[in-house]
Structure formats: structure tokens, C-alpha cells
Design a protein around this nucleic acid. Structure first.
Lengths: 245, 245
DNA sequence: GAGTGGTCTAGACCACCAA
DNA sequence: TGGTGGTCTAGACCACTCA
């Protein structure tokens, strides 16, 4: 790490290189979700840089919610299996802001093959094996979201309805616990649509009722897409919250 | 600044105190939108702290898009009047991702009074004077958004249709240029609704067409709400993009 | 070349937590 | 009490921009 490679065409700051090394250890499973990583001083010794440089690398990863700092305790690998962080990606809240019980009702879990569109989104070959999950999410006993989830079959071997129910429908938690795959980022695209047959029936709505359509692609380390999801949400007393900076 | 007030109940890091001082200078107008602020070294001398501490304060403000760093040039006060940053809060993009010409068509600009709901949102007294703007936004010649904008009349004295058109409909730019008020943050709440009379007509739609409703409250320094806005968007070939971390 | 932000270091000390 | 992250400093040097 003494070679700073200044003036080289592909110059990267040291802390950026350290960040890559840390990420590789995360991908490689050296530190698993929920575990504590070595202290800043230990890492500094390991990589032969100053504590401040390690610090900056960790700061960056903490800013991306990949690591979590806890003063006095240590730095931990973030996980979706933690109370309070479990629903990090769920932006739908009640209009009056009250907390509510969330329940899953599995509709189906089957195998399909990727058409061109999904293959492109998930970076697979057309025809690749997929797992297709449909479910209903109920808020305080009322069904509000019709969820359609698709993941590649290869990395999620053995995923079936039993396993989903064992994990209480927490998909992200299951991906981590059962397959060691952690989602670190997601992109959502929202539009308004009219409720059609199957969905209207499941949500107990009139045909044509406006629904919020949330299409989400989730990424794991290295910006690799690992899940496609389409949620159709009834928004008569809930809304999707977003903060702009 | 020598008093570090350690162990005091309301202990705040030095860089946080510097951040407050910088923010006060921004509010007070010492450095106006688009201008360069003093160099880190100068600020360090001014506040009697090290460059690193000033740096951390600036880093924080840059992270909130309040300041913009430019290596080799200096640090500048962010502005909505800059090409490329102009539409920072607009998340609606074409499905195929192509760039498009955006145009404003002013429908009305009138005075009203705050009802209880708006008074609460904008932190005013019920009955306070408001300015009410309606307009149509067209993308590549096609009307896609019916916008309803409400601001308190007091800080925006003299805002009328003429002035809006002089600023080409760029509301945030106008707030800065004409009134020295900069929006730094916004909260949005999205739901799906059905098009009703006036809006359906303006957007040339059938009654009941699903529209994306985007309610936005914008805040200036000190988390003071200064604008309420409701956009009704046709999303047949556009979508609202959002990134989750 | 002078000035700006960006990186990196080494060291001191503080705040928080657990045993 | 010892270990962890968090703050702060002083100083050296690099990368970028512009005159």
C-alpha cells in the first residue's frame, strides 16, 4: 500500500482502495450480516494505512447503509433482520402516521422462465430459470398491497412457499439468512394504474380503482440486480413518503 | 471557541457549531446563492479552529446540497438557477429515458386565505394571506402535469403572473433571485387518484384516468416550510424515479 | 505559479459501552 | 478499566484551475 500511484491515469485515493478491500471481504463472507468487523486500529494495521484513512473508507460504507457504526461497541455489517431496519425499503405509511401491524398472505410461489424484458433487468439470459412469488400485504388487517416478486432461481436454490412462510414473509431477511445475499440498494419507478381483474379481486376493489404501481429492482454488492418486484398499492389512506435533498 | 464544553449536557462537536455559524451566514445573506464562500484556510482562521474542522462542517453542508465544492476553484453556495441543477426536485422522467423540452403554461395566479389545513402545513395562522398558482407543465409539447402551488404572501410580496413569466416558470429560481429564499429540502407524499373535471380537461384525459398525485412541502433554512405544491401527473409514458439506500 | 480543495499521517484526547 | 468509535489538531503533500 506504499505505492500511491500518484500521476497514474487510474489514480484512486487510498481510502477508496481500502473501501474496495472491505467490500471484497463483505462479499467473500469474511464478516457476515450482523457481525462486528475488526476495529479501525486493527484494520489500519492490516492494510498498513493510518486509522484516519480506514475511517474514511468505513464512513463511506456507513453512508451507504452497508456498515453500521456504534460508538463504544464497534462497527457492524448491516442486516435486514434487525427490528426497526426490517422495513427499510418500505415507504408506504398511514396518512395519520400511526403504526400498524403488517401481515403477509402468500398467494403463490412457482417457477417460470425469463422473457427478454426480465432477462435484461436481472442481467440473465432469456429463458433463465426464475422463481415467481405473489402475495398480499395487509396493514392492520386490511389488504393494501398486491406484491409480485421475481428472483433468479440459481442463487436462490430451494426457495419455496414453505421457506417463505418459515421466514414470516420477510424476503430480504430470508435472502440474507438462507442464501447470504444482502440487498444494499434499490431503484423504484412509480406510476398510477387502474386496478384490473385479479388484483381488484384480491384487494376487494372495483375495477378501475386507481392504484400506485411501484416497480422495484434490488441490487446486491457490485450493483448486481437480484430481485424484481411490482407492488400495486391502494392509497386511499396511505401514501408513499419521500424526502428530497 | 476555546470552550469545548465537554461533559456539558448539551455538548456539540466543534464542527457542528461551525456548521451552525456557516448556516447563519447563509441565512443572513453574507454569501448569496451562486457566490463563493471564503477558503477553508480563511474560515479556519476566522473561527479559530483547524482546517480539518472547517472541512468537516463544509462536508456536512455539501452533503445536504447546501454548498457545492469545486476542486481548484472554491466552495460555492448552491442555487436552483444553475443549468443541470434547475430541476433537482423533479423526479419524473420518460420511460425510455430520453431528454425532453419542458414548458410552462400559466393557468392562474390569485390571492387566497389559509384554511386550517394549509395554515398548519405552512406554519401560519388560519386566514393568513396566500398566493395561489396553477399551471400546466408540458413535456415535449404534451401536457403531463397539472400543478397547484401555494406560498405565503408575506415573504413573497409582489409575486404575480408577470413575474412568474419573467422567470420562465422556474419557481425555485425566482424565489432565490427575487426574494433571496432558497429551498433546501422537500417532503413528498405520493398517491394514485382518478382525474376529475378541471384537471382531466386541462390534460385532455377521460374522467377517471389514474393520475399520480405528488404533494410536496418545501423547506428553507431552519426547516421552515415555504411552499405547498400538488402535482397531478399523467404516467402513461413517464414514471417517478426513486433510489433507496 | 499561486490559490483552492483533496488526501494522508501521527498523535492526543473525549465519549460511550461492557465487563 | 480497557476497548471502541468520535473529535480535533498540525503539517506535509497532491490534484485541479486559472491567470
Amino acid at each position: 500500500m506504499t505505492d500511491k500511484t500518484y500521476n497514474s491515469p487510474n489514480y484512486r485515493p487510498l481510502y477508496d482502495q481500502i473501501k474496495v478491500l472491505l467490500t471484497q471481504s463483505l462479499i467473500g463472507g469474511e464478516w457476515r450480516p450482523g457481525e462486528m468487523i475488526p476495529s479501525e486500529i486493527d484494520l489500519a494495521a492490516r492494510y498498513k494505512v493510518s486509522q484516519g484513512t480506514v475511517r474514511k473508507a468505513i464512513d463511506s460504507l456507513a453512508g451507504e447503509n452497508i456498515l453500521i457504526r456504534r460508538q463504544g461497541k464497534g462497527t457492524f455489517v448491516a442486516t435486514h433482520n434487525e427490528e426497526g431496519i426490517k422495513l427499510r425499503f418500505l415507504r408506504l405509511t398511514a396518512v395519520d402516521g400511526h403504526k400498524e401491524a403488517l401481515q403477509n398472505e402468500l398467494i403463490s410461489c412457482s417457477k417460470t422462465k425469463a422473457d427478454n424484458r426480465l432477462a435484461k433487468i436481472l442481467e440473465l439470459k432469456a429463458g433463465a430459470a426464475l422463481i415467481d412469488v405473489k402475495r398480499l400485504l395487509t396493514f392492520s388487517g386490511r389488504p393494501l398491497i398486491y406484491d409480485h416478486i421475481i428472483v433468479p432461481a440459481a442463487p436462490f436454490k430451494g426457495l419455496n412457499s414453505t421457506r417463505i412462510e418459515e421466514n414470516n414473509g420477510s424476503m430480504y431477511g430470508m435472502y440474507e439468512t438462507e442464501y447470504g445475499i444482502r440487498m444494499i440498494r434499490a431503484e423504484e419507478r412509480l406510476i398510477a394504474v387502474a386496478a384490473t381483474g385479479e388484483v381488484a379481486k384480491a384487494l376487494n376493489l372495483k375495477l378501475g380503482t386507481p392504484l400506485l404501481s411501484i416497480e422495484r429492482v434490488s441490487y446486491t454488492y457490485g450493483d448486481k440486480p437480484m430481485e424484481w418486484r411490482l407492488g400495486l398499492c391502494l392509497t386511499d389512506d396511505h401514501h408513499y413518503m419521500n424526502e428530497l435533498e
